[in-house]
């Protein structure tokens, strides 16, 4: 394969996967310095490049990136100096690109999602945003499907209660 073709294919993969990897790293490391989240994202893509991996399908590619992103974030999370240190309200990378009227409510949703326990966050993200079903999420995260279902139910219930201001 010509060099240009290789680079073109790599760029296509980056374009496809960067938003997913970025969002997942934000979900996992919210509150950390943005440089740490960027490090995580770069590490994921570096691992991909180093692996020289080709994927059978778009699903395989996406699942691989998600799994590796989870692992990389876990590694970073173990380093206490790189953990969440910034209040969520002050994280610029959580502001999103929406400037419309409904931006405020979207920020509120993001903030409340990120305030959930990590396990709930992972599941909600993969379910709601990436469109995986609970069996697939269980496979990706190495959890039992029933556990994922419970986490999803509880996470959403908590989220709903918070956004409605019902939680005491």
């Amino acid at each position: 394969m010509a060099e240009n073709d290789i680079i073109k294919r790599r760029h296509e993969t980056v374009e496809r996967m960067l938003p997913t990897v970025w969002r997942l790293c934000v979900m996992r490391l919210a509150g950390a310095e943005s440089s740490n989240i960027e490090d995580a994202v770069q590490e994921v893509f570096l691992r991909w490049l180093e692996s020289g991996r080709h994927f059978d399908s778009a699903e395989h590619e996406k699942a691989w990136f998600i799994r590796v992103a989870c692992n990389v974030c876990t590694d970073i999370y173990r380093d206490r100096s790189r953990r969440a240190a910034i209040p969520l309200e002050e994280c610029e990378y959580l502001m999103g690109s929406n400037t419309a009227e409904d931006a405020a409510s979207e920020h509120e949703i993001i903030r409340e999602v990120l305030a959930l326990p990590t396990a709930y966050r992972d599941v909600i993200y993969l379910y709601c945003v990436e469109g995986y079903d609970t069996n697939e999420i269980a496979g990706i995260l190495g959890r039992k499907p029933n556990t994922v279902r419970r986490e999803l139910a509880r996470g959403r219930k908590k989220l709903q209660a918070k956004l409605k201001g019902e939680e005491k």
């Binding site: 980056v14 970025w22 770069q42 570096l46 990378y93 409510s105 979207e106 993001i110």
Partner: peptide, 26 residues
């Protein structure tokens, strides 16, 4: 689901990061 998806989908990486990773890939 759609509300959560819409909100979280607003989170996007910076142009600088995208460029860095594109450069790295190239």
């Amino acid at each position: 689901v759609d509300k959560i998806k819409k909100a979280i989908s607003e989170l996007t990486p910076s142009e600088e990061l995208s460029e860095r990773i594109m450069d790295m890939a190239a």
